[in-house]
Amino acid sequence: MILSLDTSTTVCSVALHQLDGTLLGCYELFTERTASSRLTTLVQDVVTHAGHALADVSAIAVAKGPGSYTGLRIGVSTAKGLCMALDEPLIGINTLAAMTEQVRPFYPPDTLFCPMIDARRMEVYCAFYNQEGNEVRATSATVLDETSFADLLARTPVVFFGDGADKARSVLTHANAIFPTTQVRPSARTVGTLAVKAYATGDFEELVTFEPYYLKEFMTTTPKQRVN
């Protein structure tokens, strides 16, 4: 089995899949700051309630980003700790690719998919995928305006989704721009779907050196008042 974690955004989710892709269980919390306090509980619960033990798991998968700096650090550190304890491999999955897995089945073959994660102001983390789930434009931090993605929109319909899509909706008025009415959030369920494929091809991460895919450099501030 593969145990998958996603703490890329405010959603904290854990899923358990068999190696043939069968979903055995998925727990999701949609409240703020749950990853640090609830993640390990969700891990234990999803495995136990599916009738198994952590020792039965063959690999750990984690949404590697982009996303929240804090959330990604929590998810990746937890996944690495589980891999070390269980002596099992680590699989890293792009958060945007996993989001795309949620919507691909509902659109025709010529559609492109642009998952978006809010990066504050008018900036989003995004990428473009085709109907086969292949990346056709790499993950980037993009500041949105009226001309964004004009070349792609001129050729084919593009589905924009995720918590950054509301920003795109306000500036992208092209007829080929599609905005689903249902919110699409990152989920360990589709992280696990892609992790099953990665496991089959032996696409594992180097446990010691693996880090979250922050996309942008982590920025810190200096306290204005010194504490003695």
Rank of each mutant, 00 (worst) to 15 (best):
V103I: 13
L96F: 07
V76Q: 00
F161V: 11
V57H: 01
A98I: 07
A55W: 00
L5F: 11
E101T: 02
D20T: 01
N94Y: 00
K197F: 04
D118F: 08
L23T: 05
E146L: 10
A188D: 09
D203P: 00
L19I: 10
R121I: 05
M1E: 04
G162H: 02
T41S: 15
E135D: 04
T34M: 13
A154M: 01
S77R: 02
Y199L: 04
T41K: 11
A154Y: 00
G192L: 02
F218Q: 14
G75R: 10
V159A: 09
R104L: 15
T78H: 05
I2N: 09
S4H: 02
T139Q: 11
G164L: 03
E206T: 13
L82F: 05
L82I: 08
S148A: 14
I93V: 15
A168M: 08
E206D: 15
E206G: 10
T220D: 13
L152V: 13
G162S: 10
S187W: 01
A59S: 13
S37C: 06
N228Y: 05
I60S: 09
K197G: 02
P157Y: 07
V143Q: 10
D166I: 06
P89E: 06
N176A: 09
R155Y: 01
I93G: 08
H52C: 12
R73N: 12
A55T: 14
G202P: 05
V171A: 01
G75P: 08
F210T: 11
D110N: 15
V184Q: 02
E32S: 12
S187M: 07
G65A: 09
P157V: 10
N94K: 00
T147K: 13
A198E: 03
P89Y: 02
R137V: 11
T201F: 03
